[in-house]
Design a protein around this nucleic acid. Structure first.
Lengths: 110, 110
DNA sequence: ATTATTTATCGTATATTTGCGATATATATT
DNA sequence: AATATATATCGCAAATATACGATAAATAAT
């Protein structure tokens, strides 16, 4: 883009969009699903399941880490990833506070 | 990207990531917030509030429409937008079914 | 009829994302 | 020590997203 305008928005707006951005690609949804299913997951197991190259999966995992949706620990040569439920809870709270469905069946709505 | 691999993922994974993608920019979060606050919102009122050009806001609204997060009706020269709560409910269901927090305080997790 | 207002669309520039192969790095195995 | 294995990072190409000004289109006001 010409200029990045994200700073012009509030912190909460950015927190919410950052979280959403982390799950805005089906590969990252699939990765989270895989980790959640197994409770914890070795990187290689994710690579096996996904239709993507190892380096690409590694990049997606890095993004999920940066956004705080997963935690990662090194276990020898292997890397173990888990869901960071705290972040999910935080997101749920922010999400609800923003979009409280106060007037869902308002006749004025189009 | 070299090749778009989104087709390789399931329909549900794509539905979830598409919804998340729609709210993955603070401008779109701010737009949704503004509409939710006023129950319904004329395009011009959103443009007034946001730090973006009219054409840019229009583009963001188009994306929100495409993703089904808002509905839009024409009222003379003006355009009226409302939150489509059905989509939000649908998202909530898919989101919960994917990430059921079955083992949140599992000691195995890292 | 002409002009003003409102919003959508087009064209364009730039930034970011996605994806992969190649390579680096770090631990395990022989 | 040499080799194998697992994962992260680098560099690049291509696709998308973001942003704006200019313009089109459609209705309202004069």
């Amino acid at each position: 883009m010409a200029i990045n305008k994200k700073d012009e928005f509030s912190k909460k707006e950015n927190e919410l969009s950052d979280f959403a951005n982390a799950i805005s690609h089906p590969a990252r949804v699939a990765i989270l699903k895989e980790i959640a299913k197994r409770e914890q997951c070795i990187c290689g197991e994710i690579v096996e399941v996904l239709p993507l190259a190892q380096s690409t999966v590694s990049q997606h995992l890095k993004e999920l880490l940066k956004a705080g949706l997963v935690t990662g620990t090194v276990d020898g040569v292997k890397s173990c990833y888990c869901i960071n439920w705290n972040t999910f809870e935080k997101f749920e709270k922010i999400f609800n506070s923003f979009f409280t469905k106060t007037n869902s069946n308002n006749p004025k709505c189009c």
